[in-house]
Every structure is written in C-alpha cells, then in structure tokens.
Simulated scan of single mutants.
Amino acid sequence: MKSKTRITLFTIALVAIIAVTGINVYSVMAGDDEEATVSINQMQEVIDANEQLESEVSRLENEQEMEEPAAMQERQEALQATAETFVQTVYTEEAESYDDRKDEAEPIMQDDLHDFLFPEDDQDETKHRAIPEDIQFFVESGELNQPEATIMARFTQTYSAGSEDDTTATFIELDAEQQDDGTWIIQDFRDAVESMEGDEGV
C-alpha cells in the first residue's frame, strides 16, 4: 500500500515537471539569448530530475511486484493458522482440555461465536474423545486481497468411545475477517457439504 502511494506521488511530480518543462521551452523560444541560456540550463536540470524520477518509479513498481506475492503468502499463512486453531480447539473433544481450548480459541473468533461454542457451564467428565487429523485448507487467492475471506477446511475426526474408534471425514467453511493488526477473526462457520447442497437447491 505504501509503494502504491509513493508511486502515485512520483507520478504527480512527473506531471508537474513536464508542465514546468513546457514553460521553460516557451521561455527559450520567447526570450533573448541570455534568458535562453538560463532557461536551457534550467531545462537540462529538469530533464535530469525527470529521468531520476522515472527511474525511481520503475524501481518502485518492480519492488511492488516482488512484495505482493510475499504479502499474499503472509496473509494466507496467517489465515490458515487461525483456521487451524479453530479446528483444533472446536473439533477436539475431551473434557480435561476444555478450559485450555476455550482460552486458546477466544482471541481467534467473534465473541458471540466463542460463547456459543464454549459455554460457561463446565463440561461433564466423559471418556468420549474426538481428535481432528490430516487437516487441509483451501482458500481462493483473490480473497486474500479483501478484508473478508472464506476458507474451507477438510479433515478427519477419530472418535473414541471405550475400545471402539470411528473415523469420519469433515468439511467445513469458515468466514474470517482481517483486523487492523493483520490477524484474522473467525466470524462464522458451517458444514460445507450442507452449504453446497443448499446452493444447488436455490
């Protein structure tokens, strides 16, 4: 964003310099020899400055092209880290880690969503467990330029009840919003399969 601003300022400066150059040319044509010599010198200075500015604009444009992929990568990694924390805290089920997961989830999701997923009531002791594994994330790169993004998570959940284990595949969609400090906050989530079935029915 800073690079774009600087490029805009340099572009404005270029326009101003071109205008001054035109005035100087006019002065050369209209003035006497002494005035013309001064104007030619001034014009050469303006031309030199103009070339320097053009070089700087070109450098900033190249720099911006190099920065954008890195910035996109950084935003994507931050978004995926938030989504992974969501999956690990919400889709892990075990009574003894409930309070820790509740605290870990608080900074990465909207307050109302956090209160819904982690109610104040203490969780009953249970031997039932569920662990999310093999988590994968998918997000459209175009959305990384926006303050809001939808990311899909695919993972398996292994449920354990006594001596029996059951593994199921889970697909969810997460709606996230980027904050001023660059972090992402999960606003809502839904079952991705049900969401796609709903879209087909419209």
Rank of each mutant, 00 (worst) to 15 (best):
I131A: 02
I131V: 04
P132Y: 03
P132E: 01
P132V: 03
P132S: 03
E133H: 06
E133V: 10
D134T: 02
D134F: 07
I135N: 04
Q136S: 09
Q136M: 07
Q136I: 11
Q136N: 13
F137N: 11
F137I: 10
F137T: 03
F137E: 04
F137S: 06
F138I: 08
V139W: 02
V139K: 05
V139G: 03
V139Y: 03
E140N: 12
E140I: 01
E140T: 10
E140D: 12
S141N: 15
S141R: 15
E143R: 07
E143W: 05
E143F: 06
E143S: 13
E143K: 07
E143Q: 13
L144Y: 00
L144H: 01
N145E: 15
N145F: 14
N145T: 15
N145D: 14
Q146H: 15
Q146A: 15
Q146D: 15
Q146V: 13
Q146N: 15
Q146P: 07
P147C: 09
P147Y: 11
E148G: 14
E148C: 12
E148H: 13
A149C: 01
A149M: 05
A149L: 03
T150W: 02
T150R: 08
T150S: 13
T150N: 14
T150L: 06
I151L: 08
I151P: 00
I151Q: 02
I151E: 00
I151W: 09
M152C: 10
M152V: 12
M152Y: 06
A153C: 04
A153G: 05
A153N: 11
R154Q: 09
R154S: 02
F155Q: 02
F155A: 11
F155N: 04
T156N: 05
T156P: 07
Q157L: 00
Q157S: 06
Q157V: 12
T158N: 12
T158G: 06
T158L: 01
T158Y: 09
T158R: 08
Y159S: 05
Y159I: 04
Y159L: 03
Y159K: 07
S160V: 02
S160N: 13
S160K: 07
